[in-house]
Write a protein that binds this DNA or RNA. Structure first.
Lengths: 115, 115
DNA sequence: AGGTACACCGAATAATTTTTCTGTATATGA
DNA sequence: TCATATACAGAAAAATTATTCGGTGTACCT
């Protein structure tokens, strides 16, 4: 696990919230899990641009933060499932607002490439 | 200027919105500018943890994205001022929602260090 | 003249995050 | 038996972002 050298001031409510969702795929994951639980492989199909390993790592953090819950079925071959928690659900209005903002303003940023 | 090698899919409204505000200080800057325009030095006093150079760079991107506006006063020594645009203002509800979420749930994350 | 403050910027470095690569183990279907 | 799929994870590499350092030029105050 990576050990931060420059701590983030989590007493700032804005930075706290941001720190939970601002990595590349977390908001997408929450958006996918909002309606149904998904297995890692399903999530990867839903977000093909994200490598399985990446989803794996970000899911683990989401679980640590209590936004997502993991269920392991004691089967072979292994099966597991991730679902959003009630705490995670409370972030959905924020995700929705960002989705809405993006839809409304997409024309303004049609040129932009990577960034 | 840095040239991205892995482009971000800005057709995804969520990722588009995220890409505008998910760098370390942007949401804080927008939050500071929401009520009054500020000079770079004032902004640095308001956000002492952010080095002036960092604010400088992020302000430049915010201006490029049309979320912030820069006014240069033709004086010596130089004076300039940054203010939020009406487009930037439309992000404030999202910032507010994140602030609110952070305040509501700060107890749950009291332990967390950096991350 | 010397110290300070202002805004700004290029470039190097450091920090962090993301991605890729490789390997574990088991079961299923061809 | 061989290829495939499942979930998972360590470690290295690459990509991206943040920070530091040094320098520009002007004016103000002492």
């Amino acid at each position: 696990m990576y050990e931060r050298k420059i701590p983030i001031d989590l007493d700032c409510p804005l930075r706290l919230t941001m720190s939970l969702i601002d990595s590349k795929w977390k908001s997408c994951i929450l958006d996918e899990l909002r309606y149904q639980a998904m297995r890692p492989s399903e999530l990867h199909k839903a977000l093909p641009e994200a490598a399985p390993r990446v989803l794996d790592l970000q899911l683990k953090e989401l679980v640590e933060d209590g936004l997502v819950e993991k269920t392991i079925f004691p089967e072979l071959p292994p099966r597991s499932e991730y679902s959003i928690t009630s705490l995670g659900m409370t972030l959905i209005p924020i995700i929705d607002a960002m989705l809405e903002w993006g839809k409304t303003n997409k024309d303004l940023f049609e040129r932009k490439h990577g960034k």
